[in-house]
Design a binder for these strands. Sequence first.
DNA 1: ACACCACAGGTCCTCAGACAACCTGAGAGG
DNA 2: CCTCTCAGGTTGTCTGAGGACCTGTGGTGT
Lengths: 231, 231
Amino acid sequence: MPLGALRPSPLVEQATQHLRAQITQGEWPVGTRLPGENALARTLGVGRSTVREALRALAGAGLVQARQGSGVFVIATEPAEDWPARLRRAAITDVYEVRVIVETQAVRLAAARRTGEDLAALDAALEARERAAEGDDAAFVDADIALHAALVAAAGNPVLADLFAEFAPALREGLIGLVEMLGLRARHRAPGQETHAALVAAVRRGDAGAADGILRAELEETLAHLHGGRA
Amino acid sequence: MPLGALRPSPLVEQATQHLRAQITQGEWPVGTRLPGENALARTLGVGRSTVREALRALAGAGLVQARQGSGVFVIATEPAEDWPARLRRAAITDVYEVRVIVETQAVRLAAARRTGEDLAALDAALEARERAAEGDDAAFVDADIALHAALVAAAGNPVLADLFAEFAPALREGLIGLVEMLGLRARHRAPGQETHAALVAAVRRGDAGAADGILRAELEETLAHLHGGRA
DNA sequence: ACACCACAGGTCCTCAGACAACCTGAGAGG
DNA sequence: CCTCTCAGGTTGTCTGAGGACCTGTGGTGT
């Protein structure tokens, strides 16, 4: 089944559409192992690199996944639905509660696994947050979220980092409103009470319990404000 | 800026992530023409084919578009990338680790908040799981996941429930493989060791600590098997 | 009979080089 | 001023080669 001899569009496009059709039309169900690159190249009448690029495009779209030494497998038959929209629709307190769960456990892992690079990133994010305390509300919240994202990233689990990134926009919205309401009060604390610096320090010395405790206290105080603000 | 000399993941993946970051973080706004393939190859320290495949993956994800003879252009900065697809692509051990975090904290909440309806649903799910222990692997895994979903639902946080539902398909795949490997061994336990019944009982009497402990032991044993299965 | 181990084959991964097809902008010519 | 030509740069495509990785197979020892 050679693809068009004359080329109305790049061969990669044609190959991609051809393979995508096989998948979406159920010819290759989820879990199927696709034919090898050489086989596909022969079947489609194109070069191996063209086949590889077509497969890579489908991988980018989330339809297939290549496993080195094993093969290319179908992992979905259609592009999937949209989780962020559900988050925006949910109650901010529910979102925040899940954030507390994810982040407190993440810092426990971070205390055990953080690398030198992680610590450097944390220091930078901490300093940026302190600088942003002088700026406007949105910038401060962004810097705050960036610091918390760096904490989660230090756990060394990409799924966890992605999960937190998913929550970030929803958090941002709610937190900006909160900061506006509370003003500068929550931004500056007396020396020794700056929880974020203490949190990073706990992660640095690998004290999971302390990190968990500090973060939980901080987040639950904010959660209380969120509850209060609604009631 | 050469990419990692040692390869924890395929170079194409690293290159894709690197380029995606440049786009999503606003370094290259919509409409930007990316550096040429050769330039990117030099910058990233990889071959041109590798760069091409990375760009093709981003094109498949809808972030860039290549125009022959002209260049590659950014057409979107939002990773239209859906979360479930990322889960399927991630390492099963990373996914499972996050699942442990979510579920153990969820049962803590469940122990505090479960309603009568929640308990009835848990009993039903528990019984269904025991019945399914006789059936085939897929059915058993489905019943097992349904029980765990009921536990999470008892926490009374819809965001948490949605989150677990998002993980279910990815878990299902990995767990079926595991059950096939271990056979019936893990299904039946001596009376008094059936962790799921004990878990539901702990939730019923509102003992968050016990529920957390039982579940954590159960899940981490499975996680160890997953780690072992790969090594 | 079972468990463990080395090996071979197949598969994806990466690179280098070459040429074709195509677009764009600069300069020559009208 | 407009049009045309053309050179340079860019993406598109193919080929060949070798490396890394997974998996099933067969042998070996217990």
